[in-house]
């Protein structure tokens, strides 16, 4: 059931009672020499919903891959929930950070929906009953409870995106990171995804080209270009800065 929401909130950043993500002077270069991140500083508070915008190739996805240790910083520091990123903390950090990839066909790699949603909890070593319970809860959270036995390749794009989110929710992360969640969705699927993201009570960092969605959902917006953060502030205010948006290939909705 789509829930009615006002399309514009009175934005103000909540008081920060603890940074859940702390990034200090993060640099990263790919093995082929391409420098993707040039000194990123970013803090995200518990409970905050932050949008990450910027043109293709700005380094958004690269940054996100650092947040649960898939890529290793060349320089600088990343810490999640106070834990610095090292081999010892990595398993815990991966349980804390839920990363949803852009293409759900990459994220959903098991034949059935159940197997996919159960993958994370199983690899966390949870007992079987709890795995079942978590799969049920995660599917309910994305309103896909009836889809447990379905085959992944029979799903529509919008359904795949929802299941992809469920695969991560089943791990009960503290931070949800989504790469381009609304890309490739038709208007109805997009709308229901927006409602879903709004209703999930969890810290979020979401990259997107969909500035309309950003405006609607995210009080705070971080603009990246060429591996650097070029602006970070209230979405409301940044959206009014037409010069900023234009310089970095963005278009005001």
């Amino acid at each position: 059931m789509p829930i009615k929401h006002d399309s514009h909130h009175e934005f103000s950043l909540p008081e920060c009672n603890g940074d859940v993500v702390q990034i200090r002077a993060l640099h990263f270069a790919y093995p082929d020499g391409h420098v993707a991140l040039k000194g990123i500083d970013l803090n995200i508070c518990d409970g905050e919903k932050v949008a990450l915008v910027g043109p293709n190739g700005a380094g958004k996805s690269t940054l996100m891959l650092h947040l649960n240790g898939i890529l290793d910083a060349s320089e600088g520091e990343v810490s999640i929930g106070g834990l610095c990123m090292d081999d010892k903390n990595l398993p815990v950090i991966r349980a804390l950070v839920g990363l949803v990839f852009q293409n759900p066909d990459d994220q959903l790699f098991s034949p059935t929906v159940f197997d996919d949603v159960a993958f994370g909890p199983l690899h966390m070593g949870l007992p079987e009953e709890e795995v079942y319970q978590r799969v049920g809860e995660a599917l309910a959270a994305v309103q896909m409870s009836d889809f447990s036995d379905r085959l992944s390749h029979h799903l529509s794009m919008g359904q795949k995106k929802r299941i992809a989110i469920a695969t991560v929710l089943a791990m009960q992360p503290q931070i949800l990171i989504l790469d381009e969640p609304s890309a490739g969705l038709d208007p109805r699927a997009r709308r229901s995804l927006i409602n879903l993201l709004r209703d999930l009570p969890i810290t979020m960092l979401v990259s997107s080209h969909d500035l309309r969605m950003v405006e609607e959902l995210f009080p705070r917006m971080v603009v990246m270009d060429e591996g650097e953060i070029v602006a970070d502030g209230l979405t409301e205010e940044l959206m009014l800065d037409e010069a900023l948006l234009e310089t970095h290939g963005l278009e005001r909705p």
């Binding site: 991966r94 349980a95 990459d106 790699f109 098991s110 159960a118």
Partner: peptide, 18 residues
């Protein structure tokens, strides 16, 4: 990319399913 998606959900080389 699939490998990344697996690793980010805790995969360490042993594939588990129920």
């Amino acid at each position: 990319r699939i490998y990344n998606a697996m690793v980010s959900r805790g995969y360490t080389g042993h594939f588990r399913t129920l």
